[in-house]
Simulated assay, not measured.
Amino acid sequence: MSRLHFDQDIQPLSDFRAGAASFIRQINETRRPIVITQRGKGVAVVVGVAEYESMQEKIELLEEIQKAETQISAGLGMSNEDARAKILKSIKA
C-alpha cells in the first residue's frame, strides 16, 4: 500500500458521499487508502480489495510467526534435521 497523501487522501464524509465513484477510482489507481472524516475526526478508512487481502495475509503470517515463537519458547519445537527427516519420510511413503 502506498503512503497516504494528506492533501488528497483525507476527505470529509459529505465529499465522499457526493463523489464516491471518483474516490473509488482514485483508490484503485493510486493504491492508497482514503481516510473519511466526520466533524474533523477520522471515522473510517477505505482501501481497495487487493490491498485489504494483502493486509489480511500479512496479519495471518504475523500471527503464525507469533504462535511459532510461543511454541518454541515452550520447548515444543524440533530441530531442522528432525523436521527435514520427517518431511522426507512422509514424501517417500
Rank of each mutant, 00 (worst) to 15 (best):
R3S: 13
R3W: 11
F6W: 13
D9Y: 01
I10S: 09
I10V: 15
I10H: 10
Q11P: 02
P12G: 04
P12S: 10
L13D: 07
R17C: 12
A21N: 08
A21W: 02
S22C: 00
S22G: 00
S22Y: 03
I24V: 15
R25I: 05
R25Y: 05
R25F: 05
R25W: 07
Q26V: 00
I27C: 06
I27G: 04
N28I: 06
N28P: 06
E29C: 01
E29A: 12
E29R: 05
T30C: 03
T30P: 08
T30N: 07
R31F: 10
R32T: 02
R32K: 13
R32E: 02
R32N: 08
P33A: 10
P33D: 01
I34S: 01
I34D: 00
I34N: 00
V35I: 15
V35W: 07
V35N: 00
V35R: 08
V35A: 05
V35C: 08
I36G: 06
I36D: 05
T37K: 07
Q38H: 11
R39Y: 11
G40R: 09
G40M: 05
K41F: 10
K41Y: 11
G42Y: 01
V43F: 00
A44Q: 07
V45E: 07
V45H: 00
V45C: 06
V45A: 11
V47F: 01
V47K: 01
V47M: 02
V47R: 00
G48Y: 05
G48K: 01
G48N: 07
V49Q: 09
V49C: 12
A50N: 14
A50D: 15
A50H: 13
A50V: 06
E51K: 00
Y52P: 00
S54A: 15
S54F: 05
S54C: 06
M55K: 02
Q56G: 02
Q56T: 10
E57A: 15
E57I: 09
E57C: 06
K58I: 03
I59A: 07
I59W: 09
I59V: 15
I59D: 04
I59G: 01
E60T: 11
E60A: 11
L61K: 12
L61A: 14
L61C: 07
L62C: 09
E63S: 07
E63A: 08
I65R: 15
Q66F: 11
K67Q: 14
K67N: 13
K67G: 10
A68M: 14
A68T: 15
E69Y: 09
T70L: 10
Q71F: 10
Q71H: 10
S73K: 14
S73Y: 11
A74C: 04
G75D: 08
G75L: 09
L76C: 03
L76F: 04
L76R: 12
L76Y: 04
G77T: 06
S79I: 02
S79H: 04
S79C: 02
E81F: 10
D82Y: 03
D82Q: 09
A83F: 14
A83I: 14
A85D: 13
K86E: 14
